[in-house]
Computed example of a mutant assay.
Amino acid sequence: MTQRQERLFVLEASGGGRLFCVHPDGSGKTVLVTGCRVPDGVAVDVAAGHVYWTNMGVPGENDGSIERVDLDGGNRTTIVPSGVTHTPKQLHFEAVGRKLYWGDREGMRVMRCELDGSNVETLVQTGQGADDRQDERRWCVGVAVDPAGGHLYWSQKGPSDAGEGKILRAGIDLPEGQSAAERSDIEVLFEGLPEPIDLELDHAQRLLYWTDRGDPPRGNTVNRAPMHPRNAVRSPEILLTHLMEGIGITLDPDGGRMYVTDLGGSIYTAGLDGSDRKEILVAQGNLTGIAHAVLVTGKGV
C-alpha cells in the first residue's frame, strides 16, 4: 500500500552550498549534498528518482553548471558542465516533454536541455556581450512552462529595487526560421515590477505566481495573476508581504498550499490565496530554490 509522502527540497547558497530536504511542516531536515557552487534553482523528477539544481558559480564569470542526484543524495552527477551556461538561476522540470528549462541571468537568455544534459538550446536571447550584460533589465531569472497552452514564461528582473522588472511569455519552441535573439512571438505580460524573481504556474486554475525582491509595498512579496491577463486586468494580486529578499516558490495545488524561501533563511507556507501564513523554518542560511514533491513509499528519503 502506497502512502503520500511529501518533501520539500531546498537550496542554501551560504554555508558552502547545500541541498537539503524537510517535511512540509519543517521537521526531519536532512542534508543531501554539500559543496554546491552557489546553488539557486531546484527541480524534482519523482518518476526517475532525481533532483536537479543549478550552480550560479561566480556570477561575473561564465562558469555556471547543472547537477543531479538521486532522491537520497547519491550518485551526484554534473549534467551541464561549467561554462555551457553563464549564471543559471531558476530551474524547471517540464514533465510532459521531459526537459529542463532555466533562466541564465548574466547569459541574458532562457535555455533548456534533455534530462541527461544533452541538446542544450537557447530559446530566448535578450542581449550579447559585456556591454549588454551590464544592463540588468536583460537578465533572465525565473522560468515556467505551460505545455497545454504552449507557452514559456520568464522574468527579467531589472536593477535592484528599480521598478523595471518584467514577466514575459513566448511559445515553447522557436518560431520556424527565427532566432532566439529575434523572436516575433514575445509578449510582455507585466512590466514596471519591483524585481520579479522565481515563477510558478497553477495549471488547473490558470494562475501565475511569482516572488519579488524589490522594495515594499509591492516588493518582497508573493504575487499572482491570471496566466492570460486581459489588457484591463494587469494589476497583480499581492498574497504575502514582508519577506526578507524573497526567492524560491513552489506550489502544492492538491494540498492547497504554497512554500516560499527568502535570503533571510526562512521557509514560509500559506494557502494558495496567501491565507494561513506560517514560518516552518527560520535562520537556515541564505535560502534560494525550493521544490515540493510527493514521493512513493519506499523510494528516496
Rank of each mutant, 00 (worst) to 15 (best):
T2L: 10
Q5F: 09
Q5T: 03
E6F: 01
R7A: 11
L8M: 03
V22W: 02
H23E: 14
P24T: 08
G26H: 14
G35T: 09
D45Y: 14
V46P: 11
V51F: 12
W53P: 11
T54K: 12
N55M: 06
G57F: 07
G57N: 11
G60E: 02
G60Q: 05
G60A: 03
E61S: 12
G64V: 07
S65M: 14
V69P: 15
D72K: 15
D72G: 15
D72V: 11
N75T: 04
N75I: 00
I79S: 01
G83M: 01
P88L: 01
L91E: 01
H92Y: 09
G97S: 15
G97W: 12
R98T: 07
L100N: 11
Y101E: 06
W102Q: 10
W102N: 07
D104W: 02
R109G: 08
C113F: 01
C113D: 00
E114A: 15
D116F: 07
D116M: 04
N119L: 13
N119Q: 09
N119W: 05
T122M: 02
L123G: 01
Q125R: 12
G127H: 07
G129M: 05
R133C: 06
R137K: 12
W139H: 15
C140A: 15
V141Y: 15
V143E: 14
V145M: 11
A148I: 08
H151S: 06
S155F: 04
Q156F: 00
S160Y: 03
A162K: 01
A162F: 00
G163W: 02
G165F: 03
K166G: 04
R169H: 12
A170Y: 13
G171R: 14
P175L: 13
R183Y: 08
I186L: 06
I186G: 05
E187N: 05
P194R: 05
P194V: 02
D198G: 08
L199F: 09
H203E: 13
R206S: 01
L207R: 11
L208N: 11
P217Y: 02
G219N: 03
R224V: 00
R224N: 03
P226R: 11
H228S: 13
H228R: 13
N231Y: 05
E237N: 09
E237Q: 12
L239T: 07
L240K: 03
T241F: 10
E245V: 14
E245Y: 14
E245W: 14
I247K: 15
G248P: 04
L251N: 03
D254T: 05
Y259T: 00
G265M: 04
G265T: 03
S266F: 01
S266Q: 01
T269E: 00
A270V: 00
G271W: 05
G274Y: 10
S275C: 11
S275Y: 08
D276M: 03
R277M: 10
E279M: 11
I280S: 02
I280V: 07
V282W: 05
V282N: 08
G285W: 14
A291D: 06
H292I: 03
A293S: 08
V296A: 12
V296C: 09
T297R: 06
